[in-house]
């Protein structure tokens, strides 16, 4: 069964990469944002950013952008489509449990999210001489944890959406605020107080906060509150998902 799961995951990976809309929003779009804002503001040290440049603080924030694309768009839409097209049901009639279809989707999306982040990192390093003062291990851990917690929201969307059209509508409705109101693209500090309050309840805001803190090598204490919020959020989403998820 392990061989079957591996084959399934490899195939799903190929299929993900054949979907050029996914690939654009995951790999190209964040890079274009980086080139655009990096091009406008450069990456000179700014007192306002504590001695870091615009690119230095944008790259960890863009993690929110990348995770949102895979977790809030691609993952829920793929799962919902597989249910609507009865692909999950078809796997039910094989020795492979359809749970593995879900597992393979999560694996593929996790791997692609990491790939998207790595590519952004490399471009920022080469083009803008990005400074990275954090440590690799904590940054990776926070990134993976953030990814999984956002995936749990994506999973909830797939669980509650009755069909593809509804899933698409819900996904867009969640995705766009996550792009613009969480500090992923526009720094939260520039927003009026009301918007900051709205931002505080969006999970990606806490992804951005945690990523920035760990990226800039701040103390663990400054990261934990965000991680705790994300953990609670994930627990709620997973509980609700399990309650509402249907195989067909």
């Amino acid at each position: 069964m392990r061989a079957a799961l591996l084959n399934l995951t490899l195939l799903e990976m190929k299929l993900f990469m054949r979907n050029y809309i996914n690939m654009f929003f995951l790999l190209i779009f964040p890079m274009l944002m980086l080139l655009l804002f990096g091009g406008i503001f450069g990456n000179e040290p700014e007192a306002m950013f504590g001695g870091y440049g615009t690119v230095d603080i944008s790259v960890p924030a863009y993690a929110g952008l990348i995770i949102s694309v895979t977790g809030l768009m691609s993952l829920p839409l793929t799962l919902c489509q597989y249910r609507e097209k009865k692909i999950l049901k078809r796997f039910q009639a094989t020795p492979l449990s359809p749970i593995y279809v879900v597992v393979s989707q999560i694996s593929v999306h996790l791997i692609m999210t990491v790939a998207g982040m790595l590519l952004l990192f490399i471009v920022a390093k080469v083009v803008f001489d990005l400074q990275f003062v954090g440590r690799v291990l904590p940054v990776t851990a926070v990134f993976l944890f953030s990814t999984l917690s956002i995936f749990s929201l994506g999973f909830l969307v797939a669980a509650v959406a009755p069909n593809m059209r509804a899933a698409t509508a819900i996904a867009y409705l969640i995705y766009f605020p996550m792009l613009f109101l969480t500090g992923a693209t526009i720094p939260i500090e520039l927003m009026p107080e009301l918007m900051q309050k709205i931002a505080a309840v969006l999970p990606v805001t806490h992804v951005v906060k945690a990523m920035k803190a760990v990226w800039l090598g701040e103390t663990a204490a400054s990261v934990y509150p965000s991680l705790l919020i994300l953990a609670g959020f994930m627990l709620v989403c997973l509980t609700l998902s399990l309650k509402f998820f249907r195989w067909e």
Binding site: L11, L15, R18, K86
Partner: peptide, 21 residues
């Protein structure tokens, strides 16, 4: 009326199903 994954090739879906049995 089952459908298949978008953009999957005939050989790929056959190979996958073969590996399940």
């Amino acid at each position: 009326d089952t459908a298949y994954q978008d953009q999957v090739r005939v050989g790929e879906i056959c190979a996958l199903f073969s590996s399940l049995y």
